[in-house]
């Protein structure tokens, strides 16, 4: 038994080593640099305490990025979860049509973020974009998808959720399979309608799926980089974009590390609070 445990540990060693090299050490280094003034290029740097963090509080571009990222996260998390549940409930049937619909909903998930960004960039063009061509065909004026910062944010949010909705829907569909059929049968005997069944049986028992999906959608929202980088001219930034810009354009590597550390703390805090609330909800329903 003791030998088996030892050999298991030896077999796990390469994985542990890779995890340390590519996950733990970079995070520790990020933490370390965030308390220095390193520019990412020079040979010399010194510790400057929490100065990077105090400067963040008065950095308008960081605060803007924080605001836009929070709005983006809220919009995408809402779309993912509200539409994810609705589509999962609608598609939770066995037929060829439903199977085809499931594949269609999931298809964008396999596309890379770059492809998705370009597809939506072309679709949302003012001149020649397919959406405005359709809108114009009905005699309506073209939509300014990139006319203002908020418009840009909404456009990117829709593109991102279009690409990721299939994943969240699949999680909800898997969660739906865990709800015992007997509950629906008993409620039918008790005279419950479709709406009543949805709010009193389906939604409460979907709680584990909701927990996973809300945490994931919020984490993904705060990590947003690629779609926003490709689809916008940089006038609307996410926190990660802001960090990359500080590190590589301004040569403020340590400051960028501080931004990432703040993002890390935000995501951890929100996730822990969220998990706490959702778990309590799950327990009470159980």
């Amino acid at each position: 038994m003791r030998i088996a445990k030892k050999s298991a540990f030896v077999f796990a060693l390469p994985g542990i080593l890779i995890y340390f090299v590519f996950m733990v050490v970079p995070i520790l280094l990020c933490f370390y640099y965030s308390f220095t003034n390193w520019d990412g290029i020079s040979d010399h740097y010194r510790f400057n305490g929490i100065k990077n963090f105090t400067e963040l509080a008065s950095d308008d571009t960081f605060l803007d990025a924080l605001k836009y990222t929070a709005i983006f996260t809220l919009i995408t998390a809402l779309i993912y979860n509200v539409f994810g549940i609705l589509i999962a409930v609608i598609l939770d049937k066995k037929s060829k049509v439903h199977n085809f619909a499931k594949s269609t909903v999931f298809l964008p998930v396999v596309l890379s973020s770059v492809v998705v960004s370009f597809i939506w960039s072309y679709m949302t063009q003012m001149d020649g974009g397919i959406i405005n061509l359709v809108v114009n065909a009905f005699g309506l004026p073209s939509i300014h998808f990139y006319g203002s910062k908020m418009a840009i944010l909404y456009t990117v949010s829709v593109a991102v959720t279009w690409a990721g909705l299939g994943y969240f829907t699949m999680v909800y569909m898997a969660a739906l399979k865990t709800i015992p059929e007997e509950l629906y049968e008993a409620s039918t005997i008790d005279g419950a309608g479709k709406t009543s069944k949805f709010f009193r049986i389906t939604l409460p028992l979907l709680a584990p799926g909701i927990t996973i999906n809300t945490v994931l959608s919020i984490v993904w929202g705060f990590k947003q980089y690629d779609h926003m980088k490709i689809m916008t001219p940089g006038t609307v930034q996410s926190i990660t974009m802001n960090s990359i810009e500080r590190a590589f354009n301004y040569n403020m590597f340590s400051y960028a590390s501080a931004i990432i550390l703040v993002l890390f703390v935000i995501v951890i805090v929100i996730s822990v609070i969220q998990l706490g609330i959702m778990k309590r909800f799950e327990v009470s329903e159980g």
Partner: peptide
């Protein structure tokens, strides 16, 4: 104790490997 030793070794080795890229800092220009 052995697990702890291996973990510490892992950490040291990984920090050494990951730190390769910045080893020039001590060289100075």
């Amino acid at each position: 104790r052995m697990r702890s030793l291996v973990l510490v070794l892992c950490l040291l080795v990984s920090m050494l490997v990951a730190g390769c890229g910045t080893s020039n800092k001590s060289e100075g220009v």
